[in-house]
């Protein structure tokens, strides 16, 4: 019961102070989520398993760099993002971006109430399986934004921390990714 109410941040703090057994709780909570996240980019089970292991090894090794006053979820997803990017680069699926124009100039994106947005886009959620097929046709950067927002349930601020981009850029990229999905799957 106690383990259910203890937050990720509190667990991380206890692991930092030496209670390494509690690290298993973090693995338990995030293994499935990160596996689902990795599956959207990698197809081979072996690769997914390797990446997942590397992610948790890095999380443990770098746990002392985590500030328990901040949210744990964007921090672990950031590590996962970096591992996936490295893996995709190794497999040459992701060209090395010399310059990201989206985060260079200010992007003008009106942030409306996110809850309202999620409720309005309920239909979009109902077509999850079909959207998953569309995701493979999207570029990795566009795919990631959609996954983090709709499948992992992260908010704009958290996505900005994971991808190290301004919040306005996250909004613009998400909008473009949704438009692309609608183009690929006009039934929605």
């Amino acid at each position: 019961m106690l383990k259910q109410i203890i937050t990720d941040e509190q667990i991380a703090s206890k692991v930092q102070s030496g209670q390494i057994d509690l690290f298993g709780l973090l693995v338990q909570r995030y293994e499935e989520k990160l596996q689902r996240y990795a599956k959207k980019f990698l197809s081979q089970e072996e690769d997914i398993s390797d990446v997942l292991q590397n992610i948790f090894i890095k999380v443990y090794k770098n746990i002392n760099s985590f500030d328990s006053k901040r949210k744990f979820s964007p921090w672990i997803y950031r590590i996962a993002h970096n591992e996936l990017v490295n893996e995709l680069k190794k497999k040459k699926f992701l060209p090395l971006p010399l310059f990201e124009f989206d985060s260079f100039l200010p992007a003008f994106h009106k942030e409306s109430n996110e809850r309202e947005l999620r409720e309005k886009e309920f239909d979009f959620q109902k077509q999850k399986i079909k959207i998953e097929k569309c995701l493979k046709k999207l570029k990795p950067l566009q795919r990631e934004i959609l996954i983090l927002y709709y499948f992992e349930g992260l908010d704009y601020k958290a996505i900005a921390e994971v991808t190290r981009q301004p919040i306005s850029t996250v909004g613009v990229r998400l909008k473009r990714a949704k438009e692309k999905v609608k183009q690929l799957y006009p039934i929605l």
């Binding site: 390494i20 298993g24 292991q53």
Partner: peptide, 18 residues
């Protein structure tokens, strides 16, 4: 998976950076 990871940590194969 979880047990394998924790065992590695306890054996000292994976160390926390100070």
């Amino acid at each position: 998976f979880k047990e394998k990871l924790l065992n590695k940590i306890k054996k000292g194969e994976i160390k926390m950076k100070p």
